[in-house]
């Protein structure tokens, strides 16, 4: 089995889903002939034809809106937003329609759609090409918010998202689009959409993260291990619905938790996890819950970008602070 990158895993899952279900369609800007600006849809037009893969006009609210219409008609569109920074006009459709259609018609019309977007910084992209506002989506009722952090999880989670009967916002951390690679079995096995992945076990501290920050966090855990501190690393992967049980169970035996995300601190999804820890895990905690996050600033342009992004160094500093509590 060859090792593939996350973006290739997305492509593999799309092809698999289109193969097994003819109602699966791919829509977006430049997703056809060009195969998507990141090549996530490369080859799909040639393989499945122009009745399954559509280059749309440049209009984001429209992209989400036609997906709702197609979904109500029983299709399963997988719609690409070229960059998360251009998703904003379509949030209206997600919040006002996709997430509500089943509820407001009491199940008469449903919305089995997937809205994919590459997100996050760290690749020296132009302005507006590096944002992370997953927390905005996690606040919207009636949808799922899924963030893979490795090729295998991207494959399994995307298949699950496409097969799911409800709308899924699927955010792909583009910083890890091309590396690291790993072996992915193209066997059509979906991953669960409602549980965290424990990537590393440890008894001293729980590190909770998602997206591209999983790599930084694993690197920090490696360093800590060299210093005799064993960190448990949890990839949340499905922010909504949130599998709090896995996080609580981990904190029960570590007593400590640091949450790491790239999005701005205030109102970030780390706050939700910290609040739930305060609510349900306080008796297990031997130290405050700490968040390592992006700043509450506008995402800087590339020359200052690395100072914005949480790094293994910043994670280690936070962990040391938390370990100092007796």
């Amino acid at each position: 089995m060859a090792e593939i990158a996350l973006v290739e895993a997305v492509q593999l899952a799309l092809a698999r889903a289109m193969e097994e279900d003819e109602t699966v369609l791919v829509l977006g800007e430049d997703v056809g002939v060009n195969g998507g600006v990141f090549r996530a849809t490369d080859g799909l037009l040639a393989r499945f034809g122009d009745k399954r893969v559509f280059d749309t006009p440049l209009a984001e609210a429209l992209l989400a809106g036609i997906s709702v219409g197609l979904g109500a008609q029983g299709f399963r569109p997988v719609t690409e937003f070229q960059f998360m920074g251009f998703f904003y006009p379509a949030i209206d459709q997600v919040a006002n329609h996709a997430g509500r259609l089943r509820n407001r018609t009491r199940g008469r019309l449903t919305c089995p759609i997937v809205l994919r977007a590459p997100f996050g910084g760290g690749i020296h992209a132009p302005e507006h090409h590096s944002e992370s506002f997953e927390a905005m989506f996690a606040h919207i009722p009636g949808i799922r918010v899924v963030i893979p952090s490795s090729p295998a999880r991207a494959y399994g989670l995307l298949l699950a998202a496409i097969r799911d009967p409800d709308p899924v916002v699927f955010l792909e951390p583009k910083r890890v689009y091309r590396a690291p690679k790993e072996e992915v079995a193209d066997d059509g096995t979906a991953a669960p959409l409602d549980c965290c992945f424990t990537l590393r076990e440890g008894n001293d501290i729980t590190l909770v993260t998602w997206g591209a920050m999983v790599q930084e966090t694993l690197a920090a855990a490696e360093t800590l291990s060299g210093q005799g501190v064993e960190a448990e690393v949890i990839d949340v992967a499905t922010l909504k619905p949130l599998d709090m049980a896995t996080i609580l169970t981990s904190v029960e035996h570590t007593g400590r938790c640091v949450i790491i995300h790239e999005a701005p601190l205030s109102g970030g999804f780390g706050g939700e996890i910290a609040a739930r820890l305060a609510d349900r895990g306080l008796v297990s905690l031997t130290a405050p819950v700490k968040r390592v996050a992006g700043f509450d600033t506008v995402m800087p342009l590339p020359r200052l970008e690395e100072h914005y992004m949480p790094s293994a160094r910043r994670i280690l500093a936070a962990v040391r602070e938390i370990l100092e509590y007796a």
């Binding site: 809106g65 709702v68 197609l70 019309l109």
Partner: peptide, 26 residues
């Protein structure tokens, strides 16, 4: 049964109509 419910956010249903029409066309 396939008709949409009323749409309160003004004009947002125009895109749904395009999606429904695309379904018919496909």
């Amino acid at each position: 049964r396939e008709d949409f419910p009323i749409c309160v956010p003004v004009g947002t249903h125009a895109a749904h109509a395009a999606g429904v029409a695309l379904a018919f066309q496909l």
